[in-house]
């Protein structure tokens, strides 16, 4: 008789807290989905909500001052990391990095939009709570973050296969594929680069559109056929 004839239903439900009365639902820092310490991913898992929403709330909470940073680091120190280590594929990891990058970028954009919006309506009091106001509190928070970064054991990693040539993308393109190609060359997220490009075009009275045209003419389009042959 094979083991597969009688699958162990208890093993399958190991991670599902609602079916397991013995194991309590516990707030843990995530090991596999983290940007700084994995607290947001842990909270998302605990409340069974989208992690991106928690991250956006965390970024927007900066509007109320550096208190949220302090709370974040207190939680990081008090909440233990999850014991289970989930092995994720490189593809999954890449997608996760892309999603996290988009989430943080959108959070920063929304935060700046709200901040400048409030400032233009005369709510200057926010400035005194934010980082630029300086002071003892900001200094202590910075020292705390500094100590945390200094003691964390991680190296800046080299990219595995950065493309050697800058070509216009033939798959990730809206007009001529310049942004898609440049994003691939720089190993960054194309959507964010496009938004940055639009903002810079507006700020330089359209001079960046000349850059775009220049690159569209001078940079070759990537040859997918030859890439397939290589792989």
């Amino acid at each position: 008789m094979n083991d597969q004839d009688f699958p162990n239903i208890f093993d399958e439900q190991k991670d599902d807290y609602s079916y397991n009365p013995i194991r309590k639902k516990k707030l843990e820092r995530s090991n596999h989905n983290r940007i700084i310490t994995g607290i947001c991913a842990g909270i998302g898992k605990y409340f069974n909500t989208d992690v991106s929403v928690i991250r956006i709330i965390a970024v927007l909470s900066l509007l109320f001052g550096l208190w949220s940073v302090v709370v974040y680091f207190i939680l990081s120190l008090t909440v233990s990391a999850e014991l289970e280590t989930r092995i994720i594929s490189d593809e999954e990891k890449e997608l996760q990095i892309k999603l996290n990058f988009r989430t943080v970028t959108s959070g920063v954009l929304m935060l700046s939009g709200i901040y400048f919006g409030f400032s233009s309506f005369g709510f200057q009091f926010l400035q005194f709570q934010l980082f630029l106001s300086g002071g003892i509190f900001s200094g202590i928070v910075l020292i705390g973050i500094g100590i945390f970064l200094y003691t964390s054991n991680s190296q800046t990693t080299a990219l595995l296969n950065p493309p050697s040539n800058f070509n216009r993308s033939s798959t990730d393109k809206i007009i001529t594929g310049v942004c898609g190609g440049l994003a691939k060359y720089l190993s960054i997220e194309a959507q964010t680069l496009r938004i940055a490009f639009i903002i810079l075009t507006a700020l330089t009275l359209g001079l960046f559109s000349i850059l775009y045209l220049l690159l569209s003419v001078l940079v070759f389009q990537e040859n997918l056929k030859s890439n397939d042959d290589i792989t």
Partner: peptide, 17 residues
């Protein structure tokens, strides 16, 4: 400017996946 930033952020967030 603030509205543009806010809308861009929202657009990026809603299309994050």
């Amino acid at each position: 400017w603030p509205i543009a930033l806010l809308l861009t952020g929202l657009f990026l967030f809603l299309n994050r996946k």
